[in-house]
Design a binder for these strands. Sequence first.
DNA 1: ATTGTGGCCTGCCCGC
DNA 2: TGCGGGCAGGCCACAA
Length: 292
Amino acid sequence: MGFLGRHRPTVASCPVPELPEVEAYRRLAQGALGRPVRDATVYDPRFVRGAASARTVVAALRGATFRAARRHGKLLVLDLGAPRGGVDPGPPAAGVPGDGTRLGLRFGMTGRLVVDGLAGVDRLLYASDRGDAVWDRFAVRFEDGGRLVMHDPRLLGGVELDPDESLLGPDAASVSPAELRRALEHSAAPVKARLMDQRRLAGVGNLMADEILWRAGIAPQRRAASLSAAEHRRLHRHLRTTIDLLLARGGSHLGDLVPQRHPGGRCPRDGAELSRSTVGGRTSWWCGRHQR
DNA sequence: ATTGTGGCCTGCCCGC
DNA sequence: TGCGGGCAGGCCACAA
């Protein structure tokens, strides 16, 4: 141990919560549907985001049930059903803030979801593997005794009552070519920054952006508006196939480029040493030989 | 309006 | 051996 680059690939072999991880959490959360909530606990008030206070969030949950688990980009939305014996409010109006019918879960970088003791993702990059209850930030206790827990050492995630889903762009897993083009055209920003802008396109984080651009052969610092029609098509194709691949493999860290995102790392395609720089405020790795 | 920057938050690993 | 600093990245406030 100790020589340059030895530890980094090891660390990078653990997932960061991006779209594939949140999709795994969504499936996990389906196991929480239809079960009456006995109580909810906010262990750290900083974990509650948005206008509603921790007290309001807890009040909205007590006696309710989760009726659906949806994913929009990296946001997991749990639709709240009526309290037991109450009048069902009917289908929720997605994107309407303030109606008290939806609970949004964000995982930041180190957040994880645990339902009845089962984690949706085995390990997290930069998150401790220890399941210390110290880092439980929010929990829902069901009448049947089970629990839904959000665990987040760094508090970069959070829960929000009635998150404004209209602020999110189209979901990256189903974005159409025209939608992707609209997210990129006329922009002087680097194409990578635009891909990661959740208002334009929801679901792509730093690791996936590097993987997608590497596969598409497009340099991350290229101005978004400078992409040709052929590059738009190529980027869309690789965006969709990369997401499908990572969903199938089960994690955003399971791309081909990710293991090489460290000093001395080489392009898996042509063997060139990868370049590193900051693009869109994030550390970016790319191949100067084939990404143009 | 768009685009860029820094701060939040903690664990880990480095050099001193 | 301990300590300080850099770094990881999603998201937000803020500046230009």
